[in-house]
């Protein structure tokens, strides 16, 4: 009971921090903490296998990928700040949503419902594996196809490279050194290309080499 409360408080606090902080790297770390707390919550909810997957995929995969993305694009601190109106509007929407659903939840009085008896075997990882490859086989296979397509798509999108990208990537390299203004607008980038800027701080080796090829 107490553990559960602690876990919830940690998870929610970390989540609020992740959702509000301006520093995007801090936000990702806060998200990781929140996800860890949620994994603990899964454990409390008698699902150790799911908790393990949560840690492996979310913290180990997605969060790290986000950190990579931030590092590659170097926008961690350059994100523009949000206006007060925008934050108030979104906060109002979120709170209203919370209040509305919470009212329904509390009004529903779910705690009075009887907890069905279940065997220990039903909770076992074996049972999950059996169901996954038996009852939910089709969904499982579909998910695998989705993942495959996602990988292909991600590779395609991230590696697309045409003339415009060429100029932009060169510009991106320049941007690191030049610390572009926060209120940068699309379309201005082409105008502010500075060919004299060194490409040494290019975000990746490949980008740098491509930029150099372009210059040569």
């Amino acid at each position: 009971m107490l553990t559960a409360g602690l876990v919830m408080i940690v998870a929610i606090a970390a989540a609020i921090f992740a959702a509000t902080t301006r520093n995007i790297v801090h936000a990702i770390f806060a998200l990781a903490i929140s996800l860890g707390a949620i994994a603990l919550a899964f454990l409390i909810l008698k699902s150790p296998f799911v908790a393990a997957m949560e840690v492996l995929i979310y913290i180990g995969g997605i969060s790290v990928a986000m950190v990579f993305a931030v590092m590659l694009s170097s926008v961690g601190k350059s994100a523009p700040s949000e206006g007060m109106t925008r934050r108030l509007g979104a906060g109002f929407a979120a709170i209203a949503f919370f209040a509305g659903v919470a009212a329904v939840l509390i009004g529903a009085d779910l705690d009075g419902l009887p907890v069905p008896e279940t065997s220990a075997e039903a909770w076992s990882v074996q049972q999950i594996g059996r169901d996954l490859l038996d009852r939910f086989n089709v969904v499982f296979e579909l998910l695998s196809v989705v993942l495959l397509l996602a990988i292909l798509g991600a590779v395609t999108i991230a590696s697309r490279n045409d003339g415009h990208d060429e100029a932009s990537s060169g510009n991106a390299g320049a941007g690191l050194g030049a610390r572009m203004p926060d209120e940068m607008r699309p379309g201005d980038s082409a105008a502010s290309v500075n060919p004299a800027s060194p490409a040494s701080a290019a975000p990746s080796a490949s980008d740098a080499s491509r930029s150099e090829e372009a210059r040569a």
Binding site: A19, I24, V75, A90
Partner: peptide
């Protein structure tokens, strides 16, 4: 709800 707030309020795509 916190996630919803982030989606609605933030301007940074990663956020």
């Amino acid at each position: 709800s916190i996630g919803l707030y982030a989606v609605l309020a933030r301007r940074n795509l990663i956020a």
